[in-house]
């Protein structure tokens, strides 16, 4: 299996006719971890949602390819089956659908027809993954995200990621609402999947998570663009000096999208 490449070229995204992401380019290869940092309201989740194909986010120009295939013409489920994964900031709750049933359907969809995992094997795999993430076994039979705490939802996203073994995993604020133990488990799961077969885009606004998942590249997003890129020392710099120093350096008064207009 060759190493995947996700290429984003000059991407522009609008929500309700308002441009939020304003020309963003980024290339993520298998084995690489890219962190996208930035204060709230700078367009990070919009980037993630547009990559996954959420219907509320319309791409007005630019290109996105995964291993040379045009991602933007694919439906949401096609993107997922092609190997794109988004751990969502706000995962939906679905009553009446058990977590296990959902996970099995998702895994089999990813594996493709004729290649489904037998039920017994699936349950063994699920139990192992749940154990790794310190998830209670009762989790499997609970309804999908219904009544889950913030931390449980995040762990469920990571559980899905480790089951589906995507080519490119985008984690949107996976660290919010997690205590330090849960954060370490999440980091372990990411590090376990870290291989030339998977590339990561990790969205966060704190440096905390990046102590456990050491990124190869750090990008800072403001006003819907990447305003600065560097290696992991950029994250450390931001931790020490805050976003304000960087803003002064770049001459940005208000970093949120729309403020510049």
């Amino acid at each position: 299996m060759s190493s995947p490449v996700l290429t984003i070229e000059d991407l522009r995204v609008s929500v309700e006719d308002k441009e939020i992401v304003k020309g963003l380019s980024l290339q993520i290869k298998g084995g690489e971890i890219h962190a996208v940092m930035g204060p709230n309201g700078t367009g990070k989740s919009t980037l993630a949602s547009a990559l996954m194909g959420h219907p509320a986010y319309s791409v007005t120009s630019g290109r996105v390819t995964l291993d040379g295939e045009d991602v933007l013409t694919m439906s949401v489920d096609e993107r997922a089956r092609a190997g794109l994964f988004l751990a969502m900031q706000y995962p939906a709750e679905v009553s009446g659908v058990s977590n296990a049933n959902f996970l099995r359907t998702a895994l089999n969809a990813r594996r493709g027809e004729g290649n489904e995992l037998p039920v017994i094997k699936f349950h063994r795999l699920l139990q192992q993954k749940m154990k790794d993430l310190n998830i209670d076994p009762s989790f499997a039979e609970r309804y999908l995200n219904e009544g889950f705490s913030g931390g449980e939802k995040k762990r469920n996203e990571i559980l899905q990621m480790s089951l589906l073994e995507p080519k490119i995993a985008i984690l949107d604020e996976i660290d919010s609402g997690l205590d330090i133990d849960a954060l370490k488990l999440v980091a372990d799961a990411v590090n376990q999947l870290r291989s030339p077969q998977t590339g990561f885009l990790i969205i966060t606004h704190y440096q905390r998570l990046l102590q456990y998942i050491v990124p190869d590249y750090v990008h800072v997003m403001m006003q819907g663009r990447i305003v600065k890129s560097g290696d992991k020392t950029l994250a450390e710099y931001l931790e020490a000096n805050g976003y304000d120093t960087l803003k002064r350096e770049l001459g940005i008064v208000d970093e949120t999208v729309g403020a510049e207009a």
């Binding site: 996954m52 194909g53 959420h54 219907p55 439906s75 949401v76 489920d77 993107r79 997922a80 089956r81 988004l86 969502m88 995962p91 939906a92 679905v94 659908v97 049933n101 959902f102 359907t105 998702a106 969809a109 990813r110 899905q160 589906l164």
Partner: peptide, 16 residues
Amino acid sequence: YYLMARGIPRAEAERM
């Protein structure tokens, strides 16, 4: 959207 984002086609997602 959530189910589709995990690779499940729309029709099956709706049925679920």
